[in-house]
Design a protein around this nucleic acid. Structure first.
Length: 698
DNA sequence: AAAAAAT
């Protein structure tokens, strides 16, 4: 037995929580692009442009017309006159006043000229992250007005960082920036955004507001989730809240909550928000879709608004000065969010854009598969909150583009999945072998669907005196989802699928899971030939295609999405009526994740799985899940499971896997544990040996 | 065995 000294202080070991309710996540932006089937792709570019936003994102059309910015230049010029005053109001000792200008500030023409790179047609490979020139800049060009109107209030507040981050951080008292940038240089553009009182909202921008918030009408009845069990354990655990008003998150956050039409917190938010606000570390077992993105973004951003940029601001400026060149500043994000997949990173980033609306915080996202030069330019325009996949972030750090010296908030999202995907070295490199503040100084939040041994070790290493939050698994096992398992031979799958699809309403979204990338392409082609508006997502498709496929699906333009495992977890695709496991996965956890894409409150979800003799390995676990969820169990499945159990002693695991306990063993435990509901497993909750349980000899 | 992710 590998007895790693894990302090499983809270005695929770198992997977919990497929809590599928948000629909609030990741719906930002009004991207409705028309679906182009693979056959027709790249043949007629104009068809790709569904609307103005899509055009901008794809770089097919010119970006927003210059006229949109004209009004702003004048205003910024006006406001800029006050900058020097405000600067002295700050307690930073930064030397002489600088030529500061807001985005689109003095001389709109020069501004645009300088920014051509970020501003021109966007690299199509990264439409969501970087097509948002106007989105992100909008925050910038607005920053000055309210700063002006609130001038004199709370001056100097931003000079104080939160008390966790303050210890032993070097000071950067670099004055003398005057003239360094040269006329029209955008190097200083960010500073007008950074200076001033971060807790005060910047002016409205209706166009941005519309883009950020119009797409996210949830229509979800959150009250139904009140009985979802949440358990918080740990020393001096802050009391949970019942409404967003119960904790003071400041006017920017409250405004954005209301714009997002979040009426009340989801269970994970009720608990996580006060925990994070009171500067505690957090280990939370909850799924994406439970509202956990907002659960960490809201309190982190709120805290950043309260505390201001602190030393990070000076560090960025110092870096700019050292390099002495335009656009070469190293960025020191105040908060870092790590996520396993590109889509999830984008989703979090989109949420961050909502909650940083009318603030001085500029969120950025970096991930692989997209042009790194573009991402670097985006970073150089300012980055206070960074969402990243681990590999690309390490790359950025090694290129000297990102410094984590002042990263006071660290979030590991879907931590179990990141480990599954082999990111542990990169994660440790980022967290432990670089300049990141130590645990106890920074504030760290880990989210994971499961709590196996590996995650416990990570929690031990990264977290200090943490609160453990277990969010009950509802979603997949609730009566919201009708789970059907049908016996379908391989050769019959396609025609069976057609039958299912023809029985489905045109308006409902259907998610079809297959096991291989090739299979996904083939099935998409098949369905297309059969006249269905469908698209696909898998790891061999370009990043751009993946994002486009998701948007097409979400918007309902293509109500059928053929997907591999890339879409099973993390992604919040709301309103999926029907999940079809064209190919069943080989492990039950994957199954739980997949069917968790459907069954929102108020919408009954349906999950249909095609089962045949290739799926022996999942028989027992599938049976357990069906029984737990009080679903109809086909008699053939029951007898198969019985046979299987007697063939193999490994918990119904097929012989193929019996030699392979390695990284997988905890998952199996987790899957076993997951077959019980949250409330019914009190006994297990108290066992303290994590994922090693039952597999020590393996 | 597949998929995902830095190039």
């Amino acid at each position: 037995m590998s007895h790693v000294a894990v302090e499983n202080a809270h005695g929770l070991e198992q997977q919990l929580a497929v809590l599928d309710l948000s629909a609030a996540d990741g719906q930002g932006g009004g991207t409705n692009r028309r679906y182009i089937p693979p056959h027709l792709r790249n043949k007629d570019a104009s068809k790709n442009a569904g609307n103005a936003f899509a055009a901008g994102r794809q770089g097919v059309y010119t970006m927003a017309p210059p006229g949109n910015y004209g009004w702003d230049g004048g205003r910024n010029n006006f406001v800029n006159g006050y900058h020097d005053n405000r600067m002295t109001g700050n307690s930073f000792n930064r030397g002489p006043p600088r030529m500061e200008r807001g985005r689109g500030g003095i001389g709109g023409g020069g501004y645009r000229g300088n920014r051509g790179g970020s501003f021109n047609p966007i690299n199509p490979a990264q439409p969501m992250g970087f097509g948002g020139y106007d989105n992100k800049d909008a925050g910038g060009w607005n920053t000055n007005k309210d700063a002006y109107s609130s001038f004199g209030n709370n001056r100097g507040k931003s000079a104080f960082f939160n008390d966790r981050g303050n210890a032993n951080r070097g000071r950067f008292d670099h004055g003398g920036f005057g003239g360094g940038g040269g006329g029209g240089n955008s190097r200083w553009v960010e500073e007008s955004r950074d200076d001033g009182d971060w807790s005060k909202p910047t002016p409205r921008n209706e166009r941005l507001e519309h883009e950020l918030f119009s797409g996210s009408n949830t229509g979800i009845n959150f009250e139904k989730y009140d009985d979802i069990p949440v358990e918080a354990t740990g020393q001096n655990c802050p009391h949970h809240i019942e409404s967003f008003q119960d904790v003071d998150m400041g006017e920017i956050i409250m405004g954005n909550i209301s714009l997002s039409r979040y009426t009340r917190p989801t269970p994970v938010q009720k608990y996580a928000i006060p925990i994070v606000k009171s500067k505690r570390d957090l280990m939370a077992c909850a799924q994406t879709g439970s509202g956990k993105t907002a659960a960490f973004l809201l309190p982190i951003l709120s805290q950043i608004y309260t505390d201001g940029p602190g030393e990070a601001l000076n560090a960025v400026k110092a870096s700019g000065q050292e390099n002495g060149k335009y656009g070469r500043r190293k960025q020191y994000p105040i908060s870092l969010v790590l996520a396993p997949t590109r889509e999830l990173a984008l989703q979090i980033y989109d949420e961050a854009r909502k909650f940083s609306y009318r603030s001085r915080v500029r969120p950025c996202v970096v991930y692989g598969g997209a042009d790194i030069g573009q991402q670097i330019r985006d970073l150089e325009r300012g980055c206070h909150l960074l969402v990243a996949t681990p590999g690309r972030l390490v790359d950025m750090m090694e290129r000297g583009k990102i410094g984590l010296d002042y990263c006071n908030y660290l979030v590991l999202d879907e931590a179990d999945r990141m480990l599954d995907m082999g990111f542990e070295p990169q994660i440790r490199r980022i967290v432990e072998q670089d300049t990141m503040p130590h645990k106890g100084i920074r504030q760290t939040m880990m989210f994971s669907a499961t709590f196996p041994k590996e995650i416990q070790i990570l929690a031990r290493d990264f977290l200090e005196e943490y609160i453990f939050l277990a969010v009950g698994r509802v979603g997949s096992t609730s009566e919201n989802i009708t789970q059907k398992v049908v016996w379908v031979e391989e050769s019959d799958k396609r025609s069976f699928l057609l039958d299912l699809l023809s029985a489905t309403g045109k308006d409902s979204l259907t998610l079809v899971f297959v096991e291989t990338k090739k299979g996904a392409d083939a099935l998409e082609d098949f369905l297309y030939r059969e006249g269905y508006a469908c698209t696909s997502i898998h790891g061999d498709r370009s990043q751009r295609d993946r994002e486009e496929a998701l948007n097409q699906f979400r918007s309902g333009k293509c109500p059928i999405l053929v997907a591999t495992a890339v879409a099973a977890r993390g992604l919040d695709i709301s309103n999926v009526k029907h999940v079809i496991n064209f190919d069943l996965p080989s492990d039950i956890e994957e199954y739980v994740h997949r069917i968790g894409r459907t069954g929102r409150v108020g919408n009954l979800g349906l999950a249909t799985s095609f089962f045949n003799d290739k799926n022996g390995n999942i028989t027992k676990d599938l049976l357990d899940i069906l029984v737990e969820a009080k679903q109809e169990v086909p008699s053939w499945l029951e007898s198969l499971a019985y046979e299987h159990q007697h063939k193999s002693s490994n918990r119904g695991r097929s012989k193929r896997f019996s030699g392979g306990f390695g990284a997988r063993d905890y998952r199996q435990t987790a899957a076993g544990a997951s077959t019980g509901g949250f409330g019914g497993r009190g006994g297990r909750n108290q066992t303290g040996h994590g994922g090693t349980r039952g597999f020590g000899g393996g």
